[in-house]
Design a protein around this nucleic acid. Sequence first.
DNA 1: ATGAAAGCGCTAACAT
DNA 2: ATGTTAGCGCTTTCAT
Lengths: 338, 338
Amino acid sequence: LGSRRANTHRSPRTRARATDVARIANVSQMTVSRFLREPHTVTVGTQRRIAAAMRKIGYVPNRLAGALAANRTNIICMITADLRNPTLAATVQGVCDAIGDEVYQIMLAMSGRSPATEERIIRECLSHRPCGMLIHNTTHTALSRRMLQDADIPIVEVGNMTRNPIDSVVSYSNFDAIKKLTEHLTATCSRIAFVGLAARYGDRAKSRRDGYFAGLKQAGIKPDSNRIIEAPNAKSGGQILTELVQSQPDTDAVIFAGGDLAYDAVLERRRRGWEEPMRIAIASYDEALVRSLPNVLSLRIPRYDIGRRALETILLRLRGSITEPTRVEFPFELLTSH
Amino acid sequence: LGSRRANTHRSPRTRARATDVARIANVSQMTVSRFLREPHTVTVGTQRRIAAAMRKIGYVPNRLAGALAANRTNIICMITADLRNPTLAATVQGVCDAIGDEVYQIMLAMSGRSPATEERIIRECLSHRPCGMLIHNTTHTALSRRMLQDADIPIVEVGNMTRNPIDSVVSYSNFDAIKKLTEHLTATCSRIAFVGLAARYGDRAKSRRDGYFAGLKQAGIKPDSNRIIEAPNAKSGGQILTELVQSQPDTDAVIFAGGDLAYDAVLERRRRGWEEPMRIAIASYDEALVRSLPNVLSLRIPRYDIGRRALETILLRLRGSITEPTRVEFPFELLTSH
DNA sequence: ATGAAAGCGCTAACAT
DNA sequence: ATGTTAGCGCTTTCAT
């Protein structure tokens, strides 16, 4: 790679730098830098020589150095949970696709099981000085919120229409979704159970439970605490259904606040012969997993579009097209499979 | 944030630096740096003062600067395709989970529709000077291969047991998978069709087709070109099934080389009443999407474990525990749903 | 249109 | 155990 500045401290082998390109193209390093960022400010002849030199030595710019100098990266962090959950995966895909031809990179991090873990993750992400941040979660520690605010970058929270956002929100309403699901069931059922996941999901779990209450209230049904169940894990849908039918045999519908739970419960219902005649209605929070199963009520939530819009919101802020936090609420549809 | 070195050129507002922490803790900036990387080499009293100072000003280290100085990042790039495909999403999740408590970050990039796009993506990724790279694909342009080799970092290719790897490979064999699927069908069927996706998947598509031929050969069946079909897109399974039953009515089985195709075809078969009696067997490449459907033969491939192992392979190389390229082949299972 | 100088916030090497 | 010095490879600013 040619000569370096005197440096006895470092290992002699590093990658090609802009200086190396410059020497070959017979220009200053600064002109190489310009060529990369604003090619048209460099004469055509110079452009050609620089491009040739780059190709010759296989030059790949070092964005670490560039970002340090410019005090600005092209990294957007996305914090989410398990991608084996198709709803989360769809959102991330929307985020990635919304980048289009822009030169941004997604740094993907898993929030883990607790707000404390999320805090650690957020700190690690911020140490890379991202220019934006997307978080599929709306419940954070106080320090997480402070760090994100101090970062002074656009933040978009996804996953619930939180009333206390850090910055912008792009989501659908968990409350409205479950309320609508519940209301729909009250047309034909009156003893409707609700199975939620443990409260670790923070305000989302609460919003869903509140939506269930609101839906019952609308129909003039009093909630029965025997029919409100907390699932120990996402795979326990079948067992919960069985226990419920035994302990509260007059239950005529169950809402499962997670797709995995509903999936498992529907299979169990079929195994036990409770489908002919239909002994109990099952509703699922999300259609992704139960789409191919018969006789399930579910919600179609535009996860992919939410991801896209979340990233677009970041881009608009980075471009200065908008300067204030925004709040985007997406609609959803009820889905009945036969 | 206190005084800076004389600097009339820059905007005065930046984030807290190690120097700011140092001043408050009454140590040199170098000691702050040491505290972050090797806390035990600093006396306990100093540790406490530095930690307090960091908390006070909300210091978050700048890994751009650190990485530039140390010539080493903690970024591992993962190049994949659509996460709405559960097989790809599971692999990425395995990758993320394998990081455990280590301090690495995943940079996620979508390879796009062509090797040329992938080349652009690879260059962008390398500009962030990752310490490792995972690619869910084994067909690359010559320049892509050169750039990856020049990067001098551990690379793991996932998706096929390629015979021409860049560095390490962690996968299952597409050839063996389809061969086994085909062989299993030959026990009960003899006029077996094969529906593959367009050849843009490179060597994977070829491996699958070859596996189909090998499976037929094993059973002494001659391939019939009328029964080898290229699907225009992943959603066309039902239409292809219908056309096939019309044009080659004696076909008794179809292998779909993609889960989406098989899913759609099974629904179509049910709609048309071809299940009772069973007019045609359907086999799917991957079980993820067809798991809940009856009467499908499929493959269970340990995607999540492959992702985990791929990342572990990178980590072992980074630690120097292994120094040579490795080749890990995962097994798979045949799955029959009833 | 191009170049020279300064410095981004850290780490490695060499003191003490 | 802690400090000093010299960069890492770029971008910003100012000069020509």
